[in-house]
Amino acid sequence: MTLFKITITTEPIELTTLIFYLICVFLELLMYCYPGDLLINKSLLVAEAAAPGHWWGDLRSRRALILCAMRAQRALLVNAGGVFRASLPTAAAVVRTAYSYFAVLQQKMDD
């Protein structure tokens, strides 16, 4: 809706305010999704870091490394209310959906 209001606004003060608001909304979306994406990627690297090499340590250390590698095969996720995963693909999907709504509104306005 903000992008649609930007396209129909004629006053410069309101236009500037809406542009800054839109930037803040995108930054807020990225503020949650980017760290979530980093967490997913880094948590998958834990299994790769624990698995290679020779485990010359004692039996207890080997078991701990095996358990760590097995647990780390599943990524850690940040879920937003149990509805969706906070990651960059989710942020991209939100932006695509918002642009689709904008395109529909723009088309209705032209008709």
Rank of each mutant, 00 (worst) to 15 (best):
L44K: 13
V104H: 10
N79C: 00
T9V: 10
A80P: 00
G36P: 01
A86V: 07
S61L: 12
T16K: 14
F20W: 02
D110W: 05
I40Y: 06
Q107F: 15
Y34A: 02
R85V: 15
L30F: 14
D110Q: 12
E11C: 11
M109E: 13
A51D: 10
L22A: 13
K5D: 06
Y101F: 15
R85H: 09
S43T: 11
K5Q: 12
V95Q: 09
L30W: 06
L59N: 07
I6P: 01
V46E: 01
R85N: 11
A51N: 07
G53Y: 08
R96W: 09
G57R: 08
V83R: 13
A69Y: 01
P12G: 07
T16N: 12
P52V: 07
L105P: 05
T90W: 01
P89K: 06
L39S: 01
Y99C: 05
T2K: 14
R62Q: 13
E28Q: 03
R71T: 03
A92R: 12
A93T: 11
A51V: 06
E11K: 10
V46C: 02
L22V: 10
Y21I: 07
F26I: 10
I19P: 00
L88H: 02
Q106E: 09
V104L: 15
Q106G: 07
P52W: 10
R62G: 12
I23L: 03
A98M: 12
A91T: 07
L105I: 08
L18W: 09
C68M: 06
V94I: 15
F4M: 14
E14M: 02
L59T: 11
A49D: 13
G53V: 03
A49Q: 15
W56P: 05
L3V: 13
I40A: 00
E48Y: 02
Y32K: 04
